[in-house]
Amino acid sequence: DYDARVGKATLASIIDTDEGAAHLGEVALISKNTPIRESGVLFYNTLYDENASCHLALGVGFPECIEGGYDMSKEELLEHGVNVSSTHVDFMIGTDDIDIVGITPDGREVVIFQNGQWSWE
């Protein structure tokens, strides 16, 4: 299920592309301390602008993230957790004050992002 205050029809057209379009294909954690972000320029081009902010993408995942992924069938990719779709649409979600805490399998919390940047920066 999904909803949007603005652009719901656009979101629907993305999600309705195919079965995989309703699933995540990418989660990218991008520090606010990147050259693209620090330039202050909005390029209106996802290939540049996605390097300025944390983002999620609906649709196809990256087969190159799995050893031998380029040689796998659709079914094999799905078995390995790589989403398959004919679309890939990024949504920027980063902010200057975003905090991200990971949870390990044993329940321990690990600070990954603090105030928009990697915890070790």
Rank of each mutant, 00 (worst) to 15 (best):
I112P: 04
G40T: 06
F43D: 05
S85E: 10
K74D: 13
R37Y: 14
F62L: 13
N83Q: 05
S31R: 03
S53G: 05
I36F: 09
W120K: 06
E75F: 01
T46M: 15
D106L: 08
L11S: 12
E26A: 15
G69E: 08
A4C: 11
G40R: 06
T87Q: 06
L77C: 05
C54F: 07
N83S: 06
V27I: 15
F91C: 00
A9M: 01
P35L: 01
N45E: 13
D49P: 10
G116A: 01
V27E: 02
T87Y: 03
G25E: 06
D97S: 13
F91W: 02
N45A: 14
G20T: 06
E79N: 12
F91A: 01
T87W: 02
Q114K: 13
W120P: 03
S119V: 10
I66C: 11
D1K: 10
I36A: 12
I36S: 07
P105W: 12
R5W: 03
I100R: 06
I30T: 12
S86A: 11
F91P: 03
K32E: 02
G102M: 14
A9I: 06
K32P: 01
S73Y: 00
I93G: 03
A12N: 10
A12T: 12
H55D: 00
I66N: 06
N45I: 07
D3S: 15
A57Q: 09
E64F: 15
M72P: 05
E26V: 13
K32Q: 07
L29Q: 08
A22G: 14
V60M: 13
T17N: 10
E76V: 07
P63Q: 09
F113R: 01
S13Y: 06
L11G: 13
L29H: 04
C54T: 05
G59Y: 05
Q114R: 12
E121W: 03
V6I: 15
M92L: 14
S119C: 02
L47A: 07
D3N: 13
L58G: 00
Y44M: 04
Q117C: 01
E67V: 07
M92S: 02
A12P: 01
A21P: 14
Q117F: 01
E67K: 08
T17M: 09
G20R: 09
Y70W: 08
S119Q: 03
W118S: 10
Q114T: 09
F62M: 12
I98N: 02
I103L: 04
H80S: 03
D99G: 00
Y2V: 12
R5H: 01
D71Q: 10
D99Q: 00
K8P: 00
R108L: 11
N115C: 00
V60A: 14
E109M: 03
S119R: 00
V6K: 13
G20Y: 07
L56S: 04
V84F: 09
T10A: 15
R5M: 02
H80V: 01
T95S: 15
D99R: 03
I66K: 15
R5D: 10
